[in-house]
Amino acid sequence: MSKEEPLVKIRGLRFQRGARVIFDGVDMDIARGSVTAVMGPSGTGKTTLLKLIGGQLRPSAGSIEFNGQRVHELGHNQLFELRKQMGMLFQSGALLTDLSVFDNVAYPLREHTHLPASMIRKLVLLKLEAVGLRGARELMPAELSGGMARRVALARAIALDPMMVMYDEPFTGQDPISMAVLVKLIHDLNEASRPTSVIVSHDVAETASIAGQIYVISEGKVVAKGTPEAIAASSSEWVQQFMNGLPDGPARFHYPARALAEDLLGGRHA
């Protein structure tokens, strides 16, 4: 596998849930060692895209390659083997609630390595130090704030030093300080060990500040791609509305409905 080949290569991706088409002919390349952001409004299937890359969902058509392997064609055991090279930061953190912070970060190391306990302890403390929570190692997930839980989840996601880390809405619902901490952590992590990072988000400013490449998706298609500067300078009305957070534009403020007067004066039914 050549170094220039993208780590993730998506071609003609189509995915649908029942009659609803989530993706229709999406092509995407995620370069090695880069930070790639996938942006778009809520409900456009950004999390679904990460699940497709991780093999938790299978596409209706098209292909998804990770490091040369076609993810959707792998068997159960091969898929689990492949996932050891991926880390994922879930929006909720997805920490195991019956384990302490330390045990949560140690979990993948205990599952997938035969390292002695003393070595695992050192690695876990280093990962927790990197996210600033070494002192919180005895706490249980219920005792953590939302921002702390996400930092622990980040430490766990990078415990095995994966080739790629996927971030699912890492900034959503965070206060400004927690958000700044997370932006710095993701940036520093990428500077230090250069894993390939995929950030799925609709927080425009934070994501654009750390991404090298941005894909904007809407209604199942890639509507724009390029560097943050190129996206900011896009002539597309839709992209401008999204990037600048305008309430009305090509994406309508109102959900499709009949005329207000007709609704008010019309029938008795809701």
Binding site: G54, L82, M88, F90
Partner: peptide, 13 residues
């Protein structure tokens, strides 16, 4: 709370 999905993504069934 996505704990089961989290395990899957940690390559744990």
């Amino acid at each position: 709370t996505e704990q089961l999905s989290g395990l899957e993504m940690m390559a744990v069934d």
